Simulated assay, not measured.
Amino acid sequence: MNKQELIFAVAEETGFNRSDTTRVVEAMLSKIGQTLVDGSEVRLVGFGTFSVTRRKPSTGRNPRTGEPMNIASTSQPKFRAGKVLKELVN
């Protein structure tokens, strides 16, 4: 399911029109992203937790030349499924 299919499904289930549903879904995704950028996590009880983890800098090898190269530290978004979602899937 992509974002447009999600918007359509939510609009059908709630009875809201698609333009209002689109604005709600876009706002929700934007707010989750901005909260992660600000360094906080988003907990949706039963569904899961969105957070950011920090990868340490490391040394790797260039696959073409074999020379060592430095890999900078990065921030990675992370999602941890909640109990209800895990039980629903299993």
Rank of each mutant, 00 (worst) to 15 (best):
N2P: 15
E5L: 15
T65G: 07
N70L: 07
P57M: 06
R54P: 08
R55M: 13
Q76A: 15
R55A: 14
E5K: 02
T49H: 00
L85C: 05
T65Q: 09
T65D: 10
N90W: 15
F79W: 11
N62Y: 09
T21E: 07
M1E: 02
V42S: 02
T65H: 12
K3D: 04
Q4K: 04
R55H: 14
L29M: 06
A27P: 00
K86H: 05
V37A: 10
E87S: 06
I71W: 09
V89S: 15
V24Y: 00
S58C: 12
A72S: 14
E12P: 07
R43H: 10
V24L: 01
R18P: 08
S30H: 07
L36S: 04
T59K: 12
N2C: 12
L29F: 01
L36N: 11
R55S: 14
E12T: 03
T14A: 11
R61Y: 11
G15V: 02
K86P: 04
F50L: 13
E12M: 10
E26K: 08
A72R: 14
A11S: 13
A81K: 05
N17E: 02
F16Y: 10
I32N: 02
L88C: 14
L85V: 11
R64V: 08
K3P: 03
D20Q: 06
R43M: 05
T22R: 08
K3Y: 05
D38G: 15
I7D: 08
L36Y: 02
R61A: 04
S51T: 05
T49P: 00
